[in-house]
Design a protein around this nucleic acid. Structure first.
Lengths: 94, 94
DNA sequence: GAGCTATTTAGAGTTTTTTCTAAATAGCCG
DNA sequence: CGGCTATTTAGAAAAAACTCTAAATAGCTC
């Protein structure tokens, strides 16, 4: 999905925490859920948003679904921020 | 304001475009508004969110209010993303 | 296949966000 | 001062996001 969806996905604290959890490796939906005081349905909702933003990808194994962090999209985000920060084109200095 | 507010502020496409506009230097609220098909009131609303997130700061001059990008907060955001991406602590590799 | 476990989907309720119009504030300039 | 310009604030309406409960799907394992 689009760049806008990536930012949107990152804007929720629960989703950011999920991403942080995944830093240390793949985790099943249930495992992720156990870190929050929310129903599995809500966690599933958040995972879906992260998945659509391509910030995570899933892999099915037995009857578990594992989620993995997709660092390449994080890098794209950083690139955008870097442009924002460093973008000193257009400056009218002499 | 908090870190969460910074992400929230970045999550709206209008606000991201405002930040991008400010890359090339300070701009008055009116000038910013002229780049969008929205009322001044709405632009003011967005500017206020950016200001609370410390992504921009204002300086008053005559009866204009100029807005400037605050790159240091952008850097903080990048730092967070960098931690997310690079955080390979906790890995159980052998 | 029956029952179990893991997870998602559907639908509804609540809260938050975005936008507008109208009115208020603030400072300039003649 | 009086009017003008620039911008914000207030309040309301509409849209989007988040969360829950209940039900559905899917793939084990016995």
């Amino acid at each position: 999905m689009s760049f806008a969806d990536t930012f949107k996905a990152m804007s929720d604290p629960v989703r950011r925490e999920i991403l942080m959890l995944l830093r240390s490796g793949r985790m099943s939906a249930g495992e992720i859920g156990s870190h929050f005081e929310m129903t599995g349905a809500t966690i599933s909702y958040h995972l879906n948003i992260l998945k659509k933003a391509e910030l995570v990808f899933e892999s099915r194994e037995k009857n578990f679904i594992y989620y993995d962090l997709n660092t390449s999209v994080v890098e794209e985000l950083m690139l955008w921020l870097s442009e924002l920060k460093g973008g000193n084109n257009h400056v009218e200095e002499v």
